Every structure is written in C-alpha cells, then in structure tokens.
Amino acid sequence: MDLRTGGPLLSVRTFLLGGAGLALAGCSGTTLPGAGSPLPSPVGAQATAAPGSTIGTGSVKIAMLLPLSAGGAAGNTATQLRNAAEMAVAEFQGPDITILVKDDGGSAAGAQAAAQAALQEGAEMFLGPLLADAVRGAAAVARPAGRPIIAYSTDTSVAARGVYLMSFTPQNTVDRIVQHAAQTGKRSYAAFVPESAFGQVVQGAFQEAVSRSGGRVVAIEKFPLDPNGVTAAASRMSGISGQIDAIFVPDPYDGAAIRALSSAGIDTRRVQVLGVGPWVGNRAAAQAAPTALYSAPDEAGFQSYAGRYRARFGSDPARITSLAYDSVSLIAALVRTQGSQRFSEAVLTNSSGFNGVDGLFRFRADGSPQRGLAVIQAGGRVVSPAPRTFAGS
C-alpha cells in the first residue's frame, strides 16, 4: 500500500497489498479514488493541540494518544505529531475517519485513562502513544478490548501481538548495515560502543545481526562519554586492526570515538566503519571517517513532506513526525479499501507491507517493525538504495 503524497511526481496515492485481493507489491499499484494533490493550507504559527480535540469528521473513530501536557521535548513533539496527523487528514481527500486526540500525560496511568475514554467514545483502534510506559498503559486497555495499537515508541520491549511499532528501531538500522557489510564480504567484526542505554541496545542488536549473517565478533569494547575515557578505551583495541574487516561504532555525537580509534592504530581506510542513523547530516562524523557507512530512510520523501509541513505550520517538523503522517494515511487508506477487516491482524501484518513518506515498512506479527532502509556513506552518497519491496527478506 503506497501512502506517498505531495510533489508533482508523488501527487497520487496508490496501494499495494499482496494477498488481500489487490496488486502485489512491486507492481504498478492501483490509484485510490479521489486522491490528488495536497489541499491548500494557510500559513500560520505552530498549532497548539487541546486535550480532547478531534481531527476530521468521518464515521470511523480512531484514537491518538500523545503526551500533550508533558512539557519539554515530549510535549513539543506531541504537538508536532498532532499537526502531522491533521495534515495527513487534510491531504487525503475525503477520509472517512475522525481522530480523537487524547492527552496521555506521558505516563502509564494517563495512557490507561485516555485509552478508556477513547473506547467509551467508540474508538476502533489507537495511534500512539509516544513513550514506552504510556504504550504499556494503553495496551492494558486496548488489547483486552481487541483494539490494535500503532505506537511511536522505539522501545521494542513494548511490541506485542496487536501492539505494533511504527518507529525506526535500533534493531532495524543495525540489521541493515550488517546485512550490507556481509554482502560485501565482511566476516570478522568488532564493536566500540558507548556506555549508555543506547549503547546496550545497539550492542545486542549488532551481535544478533552478525550471528545471523554468518560472521563473528572478534571484540567488543565500551567507552565512557568523556574524552579521556574514549581515548583509553580505544587504546585497548589497538592490537585487533589486522583481525577484523569492519568495526561498528554507534557514536552519534561528533566523531570522537572514530578519531580515538584511528589514533590507536585502527586503519579506518582498510577496516570498514559501520555507523548509525544520527550521522545523517553530521559533518564532524563524516570528516572523522569519510568512508563510514550507516543505514537510514531515503530522505526524498521526507523532504517533500517537510516542505508541506513548513508551509502549513510555519516551522520545521521533527524527524519523528512522519510516523504520525504515515500512520494516519495508512488508517485512512485501510478504511477506504478493506471494509470490516480494515484493522484485522491479517491486514495490518500483510507481508508486502506499505510505502509512505519514509519508504517501505511493515509490521511483524510480534508487533516489531521492519523498514526498507538505504545504506549511505558518511559524506551523503547512497551506496545501496532502500528496497522497493520486501521480496526475499
């Protein structure tokens, strides 16, 4: 199901759903009736969502749970996610949905209360929450009621049958970059990871990905987040340069870890450096290792979406907001095309997946997401484009 919109080349929505009586993914697709160019929108200040507000006037009710009152970064992100949902409804001509926007306060208890209120108002499914604890709270209400959730958390521990994650997870990005390394002949790996929750997650994902690829992990070293600690940790890896083909360095900061490894004798011109998505646009990381590779979504779709968001709300969208846009577009398309089975497990976990602003994605039966990602060199050159289908995955 192709959810792309905007721009002269992507001005229509087509849908591809193998096994659901529609075109198989990889074919040209079918145009949704009534889809067209985005509707004109007034330019104005960033909208502020009020708890309990609604978006759209359709007959099918969908709940969107967001930490609108949480304050700080979470509250600001919640407002932008709500904006993206509003934009998706405006650009999908005649969607038969009403989104019940509920404030979950960023907590499990708040999400439980918000989910219960939405159920009483007739919500058939849930979008959000954003934060992991809130997802758990919402799931405690939604799952017993048989209502699926498409959440925006990156914490895969909250994924479950009927609780699907829309996000870009560390597992997805690490899987893609290790898969590419294996396809180019890399077999022996090392990892240099930060001592943090993020480091712990990506280390586990890295070890699993290398094992699946048939490779071996020669060494793993952790570094603290201070310059002296990075240098000392890198020195402990100085003797392994000749034993490895690639080294995984999930350093999303300023390239300090890569520079420390180079100073310790790791030849980053011979040993392939594998990085992470936050290197997108990071000049310091690119300068530290110009040939390093990372995985990320193709940016073309997001840039088109961001331009339309900027015109509508007068500010740049956070990267995560495309998740709300794509999830609302998906729901609107399923309501239009899938009848009473629109939110069934069979439809939501269709193996062909869906295609949106950020490219190809699908939900596994266990709730975890799979994304079609590109492999990009630190300087910005795409060395392996994002896949167009999940065939062979």
Rank of each mutant, 00 (worst) to 15 (best):
A209S: 14
A209T: 04
V210P: 01
S211A: 13
S211T: 10
S211E: 10
S211C: 03
S211I: 01
R212P: 03
S213D: 15
S213L: 11
G214H: 07
G214F: 09
G214K: 08
G215M: 15
G215H: 13
R216H: 15
V218E: 15
V218M: 12
A219P: 01
E221F: 10
P224A: 12
P224V: 12
P227D: 11
P227H: 08
N228Y: 14
G229P: 03
V230D: 01
T231G: 12
T231A: 15
A233G: 08
A233C: 09
A233E: 11
A234D: 02
S235W: 08
R236W: 03
M237Q: 08
G239D: 15
I240K: 01
I240A: 10
S241F: 04
G242N: 08
G242R: 08
G242L: 11
Q243F: 09
I244L: 04
I244M: 03
D245A: 07
F248N: 02
F248G: 06
F248R: 01
V249W: 03
P250I: 09
P250G: 04
D254I: 10
A256L: 12
A257N: 00
I258D: 00
I258N: 00
R259Q: 14
S262P: 01
S263D: 06
S263I: 11
S263K: 04
S263F: 03
D267G: 05
D267T: 08
R270G: 12
V271C: 00
V273P: 00
V273S: 02
G275I: 07
V276W: 03
V276F: 06
G277N: 14
G277M: 15
P278H: 03
P278G: 03
P278C: 05
G281W: 11
G281C: 13
N282P: 12
N282A: 12
R283T: 13
A284V: 06
A285K: 02
Q287D: 12
A289H: 01
P290A: 11
L293R: 00
Y294Q: 11
S295E: 10
A296Y: 11
P297N: 06
D298A: 14
E299F: 13
E299I: 08
E299S: 14
A300F: 07
A300D: 14
A300R: 05
G301W: 00
F302P: 05
F302V: 12
S304Q: 13
A306M: 10
A306D: 11
A306E: 10
G307C: 08
Y309M: 13
R310K: 15
R310F: 15
R312T: 14
R312V: 14
F313T: 07
G314D: 10
P317E: 04
P317L: 07
R319E: 11
R319H: 04
